[in-house]
Amino acid sequence: MRAGRRLAIGVGLGLGLGGCSGSQSALDAHGAQASALRDLMGLFTVVCGTVWLLVLLALAVAVWRRRASGREPAEPGATSERRLGIVVGVAVALTVLTITGLTFASYRTTRGLTGIADEGVTIRLRGYQWWWEATYQDQAPERVFRTANELRIPVGRPVRVELAGVDVIHSFWVPSLAGKQDIIPGRQNEITLKAERPGIYRGQCAEFCGLQHAHMAFLVIAELPENYEAWRSAQLRAAEPPADPEAARGRDVFLAKSCKACHAIRGTPAGGVLGPDLTHVASRETIAAGLLPTTRGSLAAWVADPQTVKPGSKMPLVPLDADELRAVSAYLASLK
């Protein structure tokens, strides 16, 4: 496999890519699965590329070998027919060999993908039109919590992601870590992620799921285990009561308006489940499924008019006056 990887990188470089194309690329592998897949991709590319070049070569020679000589069609001779027959036969035999080899290689990789043991981090991930809800599982019910659009995982440990469908089909895909897996209503799927080094890996829904399928992204943030544990404990805590008066007013507005019908903020009466859990919304890198970076401004823009920012989104426009909006955004921005 070492050699295979070097080959893959070589091919990648040769094609001018070099595997450094950002955080959402199958060529930029940072996980065990993705690496295996990238190696396999290298193997297939080389084999198929060679076959293609050979066919091109044969075609070029065939047409440049001789030219038309008058209109009269030729009657094929018996010896040349036999010779062509042998060549074609050999080519077919080689084809059979090649595809057998490729089938075997891909079967081996498949087996490798499923062999990763479960070590305890289990996340239940649900795809909604058009955002993600992650529930971190734990034996102890009080250590279970809900978050959205962002997964934090410990580096070097396999993480089991259980995929359960709710509305339509979505597909969970973090190309730098692993291949994709569909989330299908009425079915249980799962996938194992394992990040080799810390980093931020972007993922995106890969199955067309309606109007805003294009804006259904998420981040996987792989951290050193100690940072991960710290983050996890922070997530378990309820939201801090607002420190400044503007944020406090924001909380009151939030609780007075319909926001709480859809959103939960632990530590407040808001317990809605139709939208993302906002307890620590400001601790997340992005909002609205990867659409905007989390800043006070973007939170305000989103709440002011979600239907312009993300047309068709399942969050309605809740009318707020300018003051209310300012207060709500201050409150949300304080939910670290």
Partner: peptide, 8 residues
């Protein structure tokens, strides 16, 4: 190939 298709 099943595994490759998981990516592409």
């Amino acid at each position: 190939s099943v595994p490759l298709d998981l990516q592409v």
